[in-house]
Design a protein around this nucleic acid. Structure first.
Lengths: 279, 279
DNA sequence: TTGACTCATGACTGACCGGTCAGTTATTAT
DNA sequence: ATAATAACTGACCGGTCAGTCATGAGTCAA
């Protein structure tokens, strides 16, 4: 990733967090970076493309740091504390902006964004499960969904104070404080409230794709091609026919998809198909 | 409040929650209501005026219900549970949207919105303090900020599950579950982490106004008047001069402000000055 | 020196948005 | 039945924004 891209991502994320995505113009972003508007479009396909990159940039950063906890050689308790420290450090500045964006279910970009979001959630959830089981033993297994929901909530509560009041809190102390509270909560547990399946399933949160939607997309692209002998056109036709059958043959679809790879027109469709087949 | 106003407010709040304020056009709102765009402006001064009304509508609803807890004749524990029940019932659908808007520090409306928001927060905080002290005794006094932050976080965590997964959870059970967890947390408390003043002070959250900002506003309005003999122009000039001195005389400013009351041009400035003098 | 190439620019365009208003329709009063 | 008033409409306007593109500036090999 080039320096300029990083510069834009970091400046933009500040502005998005401060003013919101829609309310921030590309001009404002480029002004803040000291570059021209045209130059922006050398680095990013669109404003939405930038948004996706912002998510990728901070998301992978966070996932990497959380993933690295496993390699720390220390006590389970310290590891658990470290998990909170990382959250406070990394998410603090961007959580509001991330939360804000989560609600905007408009653009095609959000499809990819939801995927990334789910990947992050999943990673955080798995890590938390691991850390909790290591620290408190298998006995708490049934309580994991509740514990995680509550801990995430508590974390969020303190993040809001850090962000909103711009108060410099001692993050290490805070992490240790939260782990102590976790001790208390766990010692008092009786019956769990949440069942595992009530917790947001990471697969299910993504918008599910219907065959109807795919067929409509295919028809639209076919109309744009208009040459019935075109390789892409034929491939699309075959995929469409296959989708219409109730028990479509996945290999037929994935095979035909290989003919679409280079066409920019079908970029979005291919992405949808991949997600559709992998669900 | 007329039926149409309520219709618009409720439809709009759904759209705002789904897509965000900026991303939702007035046309979309009126389409959803089955009325014309022009008709919208018979009920609301502007799109921002609508936003304020949405806040007022749900805010007062919530404040009323929370305020009514005190009149319930039951045990402190049941009252405390009821507090959560109300939150889950009322906030659930709108909390995300409310949180989302809190970050958009753009418009003049937000000034008023912040006031309402602070009123709500304050009410919720005071009520919680009361309920907690009644249930657990004065001993927890020093821990109140932490407890409230954590409980708000936990509440939010479960709200997210309700909202995001559209799962029908038993709210009464959930409230009771949370109160039990509160028992555990409180029984294990040692040293508080947050000090009272670190919790968001309800006055302080409003954006502070600088003299520089005011002077800039004044100069801008003066340029728009251009008649140096105009009463408003002279008043603005005097206020500007007064603000430039380090120990400005408040009476001079408030006196001059009375000359500005009727001018639409100075509406925003007057509001800022009032907040500035009252801080 | 030249010309081919890359990178950067900002004026420009078409779409859209908030808000207005002249005109139409519905309702009530006479 | 008619006049008066209120409620409503949608075409329209000024303005903003995302995205484009003709132009220019800098670089370097020939």
């Amino acid at each position: 990733m080039s320096d300029k891209k990083i510069l834009i991502i970091e400046k933009a994320s500040e502005l998005f967090a401060k003013k919101g995505f829609e309310a921030t113009s590309v001009q404002e972003i480029t002004d803040a970076c000291g570059i021209s508007k045209g130059s922006f479009y050398l680095s990013f396909k669109s404003k939405e493309g930038l948004l996706l990159s912002v998510f990728e940039y901070f998301g992978t950063k966070l996932i990497d740091r959380i993933g690295a906890i496993h390699h720390m050689e220390t006590t389970p308790r310290k590891r658990f504390e470290q998990f909170f420290v990382i959250q406070f450090e990394e998410i603090a500045r961007y959580s509001d902006f991330i939360l804000m964006q989560m609600r905007e279910q408009t653009s095609p970009v959000n499809e990819e964004m939801l995927d990334l979001m789910n990947k992050m959630r999943k990673k955080a959830y798995e890590t938390m499960e691991n850390l909790l089981l290591n620290l408190y033993g298998e006995g708490i297994h049934n309580h994991l969904p509740d514990i995680i929901v509550m801990l995430n909530g508590i974390t969020h509560g303190y993040i809001e104070i850090i962000v909103f009041n711009k108060k410099k809190l001692n993050i290490a102390d805070l992490a240790s404080y939260i782990v102590e509270r976790t001790d208390s909560i766990i010692s008092g547990l009786t019956e769990p409230f949440l069942k595992k399946e009530q917790l947001l399933s990471f697969e299910g949160t993504a918008i599910s794709i219907t065959t109807e939607e795919l067929i409509k997309d295919i028809e639209m692209i076919k109309r744009q091609i208009n040459d019935t002998e075109d390789e892409v056109f034929i491939s699309l036709d075959v995929i469409g026919q296959e989708l219409l059958t109730l028990d479509f043959r996945k290999p037929v679809i994935s095979g035909m998809m290989s003919n679409l790879d280079n066409s920019e027109l079908t970029e979005g469709l291919v992405r949808k198909l991949v997600r559709f087949l992998n669900r």
